[in-house]
Design a protein around this nucleic acid. Structure first.
Lengths: 123, 123, 123, 123
DNA sequence: GTGGTCTAGACCACC
DNA sequence: GTGGTCTAGACCACG
């Protein structure tokens, strides 16, 4: 399990953690019922507050990606492969739909967008 | 000149204004040397604070899209068509590059992204 | 707007606040776009931490019952009457379904439950 | 004697056990002086800690539903049928009274509650 | 002035 | 040992 925090990105730390963990769950790196490391351990390793990690864990639980057993730890929710796929495209879809509006008001054509996309994807 | 503000989007108001005006400049709706309306007028019409409009204008000036003549008003910066295009793709490109990272960590393939893109674009 | 906190109930404070405010929104006591009092004010009045109030507000926002405008305050989300009704019965329904299981394992008949219900309702 | 544990319900394990055993005692499935299995056996079968089972047994004893004979085991307390009934309605009544408050603050009418109740009961 | 985030440190319940 | 809750106090962004 790997987490990288950027202090310059502007996004809140708990959200960066959420995005990275959720991605790892959704693309199968963290399989069902995997036990996440204790929040205090993560906090120490990342040199951030326990509260901040907990906040990220809460968002994950709220999104239905992990479940908590008091006194034991937090675990990856068992999800059917198609449920995983659904969540994955849903998460990406929301972001993409929001950005599309902006691209369109900028007057970019669909082809222009796709061209830029391909260029970026290879990096 | 049209601006629509959403209270529920979560984005700060000044940024919503910036995005909409900049888009109108970059896609040619607002041609070179067009005089923008006084910030007090805009503030009244949108029922928001003058400070907020000022902040948006500042961002526009900082981006080199408008220039201010003290006592006279704010005007659209004259730009060569290719300069316009460059800024346009630059702005879109920054956003797109940032989002791409997320799509990739989610494990989406290029084809999947393009498919979703096409679907959204038609709406 | 009235909030009563019980330290003996065992339920966390933020949840008590959430339940009371959500109830007031759902039964129409707090109409659309009502501005909630600042979290610091509520915290002072209830003699609890700002964080605890904020936590309750977050849950309300997550439930789609209020929306936040940074720098201005928090407001009741405008909802169609039927949407209100739907949320209301949904919230109650979840709790009720959970309890029903227990009543059934206790071997209570439907009539027994209804009888107790009527007796309690009048209090 | 059957016990089912849910890791996702959020309720503590010892409480889940308590609710299920107490229900079985109160509705007569476990008659007077029945000997409960040793806590170590239960712990093994459910793959949980002995401490957790012990905790549930303690709650049962505290509720007057079982009694312990050191070195011999735990047994169901002999209760008159009407005493059983009393405890049963008392347990259910406490829960129901608590929930009623919430339903009422949500503005649900008695008829609405009963309607939902009937619908749920059949499931 | 408002809310948004992060911190450090404490106490409790559960296992 | 684990997570759950609450506290007080700080800094920043928005309006």
């Amino acid at each position: 399990m790997e987490i990288v925090i950027s202090n310059t990105s502007g996004d809140p730390i708990y959200q960066q953690i959420f995005e990275q963990i959720s991605a790892q769950i959704l693309n199968g790196v963290l399989p069902s019922d995997t036990c996440l490391p204790p929040i205090r351990t993560v906090a120490k390793e990342l040199r951030i507050s326990v509260i901040t990690v907990k906040r990220a864990w809460e968002e994950l639980e709220h999104a239905g990606l992990i479940y908590t057993m008091a006194g034991k730890g937090c675990f990856v929710t068992p999800l059917q492969p198609n449920a995983l796929d659904e969540k994955r495209t849903q998460l990406a879809g929301e972001k993409l739909a929001k950005d599309m509006e902006y691209y369109k008001t900028l007057g970019l054509s669909l082809d222009e967008i796709i061209a830029m996309l391909k260029k970026d994807y290879e990096k």
